[in-house]
Design a protein around this nucleic acid. Structure first.
Lengths: 213, 213
DNA sequence: GTTGACAACCTACCCAGTAGTATGTGCAAT
DNA sequence: ATTGCACATACTACTGGGTAGGTTGTCAAC
């Protein structure tokens, strides 16, 4: 669990709102979602939402930060595992991608939160909150970065620009957030298969054997 | 040029508005951009925008469709080229990725347009227009699909699920739309280098040699 | 068992911003 | 002189974030 995770303990009331909000943000997008939409979906009114969250941006922030908590928890078991860097990277990538699939609404909120921050959120208050989210995501990215570099030092990977390599890797691993839709009667094994395809794609990509066809 | 390209001939007046609108949509996002924002940036007023475009959605549509036209033009030279499928794929992918880099505001509008459609645009009129955009994009995707399949038949590639493979490939090739920022004194060669990294990543990824570490 | 306090809402409202429109205006071409 | 294009001005109508104040249920203290 991330250090900040403890700062965001949500009770039942908050969690129910967050679940619905995450779903709305996924379906309509943050800007196109009104608090009334969220409330309607909850079978209640705005009052309930504003009782627990100071603003609409605050709600997005809470949802996104929870998504990041899920990610930290997912890869935590492997961080101190005693295995080759490439193997560790593989396990972390699978765990990460499965989190994208299984918590898609929350992960989508992370994406939207970061995007809004990058675009320059309006109020200073909003910016500070979203900046915290971006920091959290950067800290998370760093965990992969060190494993990536170690794997390259071991000769298991051979990418060029580390910054672009990480961009492309995360783009691939995160991509289910954009296109994954659960099929009827889908099992955990099916989802694992999808995750494996993403990870195989990414890890192969990090090994630039194709260099200049 | 695509068949539909001729349907969207924009004169100087329209193009100036589209350029500014594309930039605004990129920086603030479609929903967060008001027509007044676009007009302000043009040094004029709403009247000018609404003189050329029926609605805000219409403006997005025009921008996005123009972005797709750019893409069709970029890969056109290679479609009937006499070369191995894998080589053709490589050239098309480079051209495509360079288009993402060089026309980022327009390409970002394509992405936003598709997203808004997927999320279910409000009015039927909007839906129809955006559905045209999605069709155009699907037609474009098909051009890659056939080359991809031929390359696999040639034994040059070996992906599993074709649908997921294309998703991941386009995700990688399109990714500069999200993170590319021109550096100071950047040359065409620099941009080509970035495109190459994306394409190498994608093509390596399509060759599942890593399968199960 | 009554009171007080507090959480968890709801109702009714304000108001800033924004898509879209109706109408006016300058100017170039004919 | 008149038409018509390319805008500007000045609206309307409405959405949607946020707030102020009231209401209800619960639970602890006395």
């Amino acid at each position: 669990m991330s250090e900040t995770a403890m700062l965001f303990v949500h009770d039942e009331g908050q969690k129910a709102i967050m679940d619905v909000a995450a779903q709305c943000f996924l379906e309509r997008g943050f800007h196109a979602t009104s608090i009334d939409d969220v409330a309607r979906r909850l079978g209640s009114t705005k009052g309930r939402v504003y009782h627990f969250f100071a603003s609409k941006a605050d709600l997005l922030f809470a949802v996104a930060e929870h998504g990041m908590d899920v990610n930290f928890k997912a890869i935590e078991p492997y961080l101190d595992a005693d295995m080759p860097a490439i193997k560790k990277l593989y396990e972390m990538a699978i765990a990460h991608t499965l989190a994208m699939i299984n918590y898609r609404p929350y992960q989508n909120a992370v994406w939207q939160g970061v995007e809004i921050y990058m675009r320059g959120a309006t109020t200073p208050e909003q910016r500070e909150r979203l900046s915290t989210l971006v920091d959290t995501r950067d800290r998370y990215s760093t965990l992969f970065r060190s494993v990536l570099e170690q794997a390259r030092d071991d000769g298991a990977l051979s990418y060029r620009d580390g910054s672009i390599a990480r961009q492309l890797m995360f783009m691939t691993l995160n991509s289910p957030v954009f296109w994954y839709k659960p099929r009827e009667g889908e099992t955990d094994a099916d989802r694992l298969s999808i995750a494996r395809q993403c990870v195989d794609f990414a890890l192969s990509g990090l090994d630039a054997r194709h260099a200049a066809v």
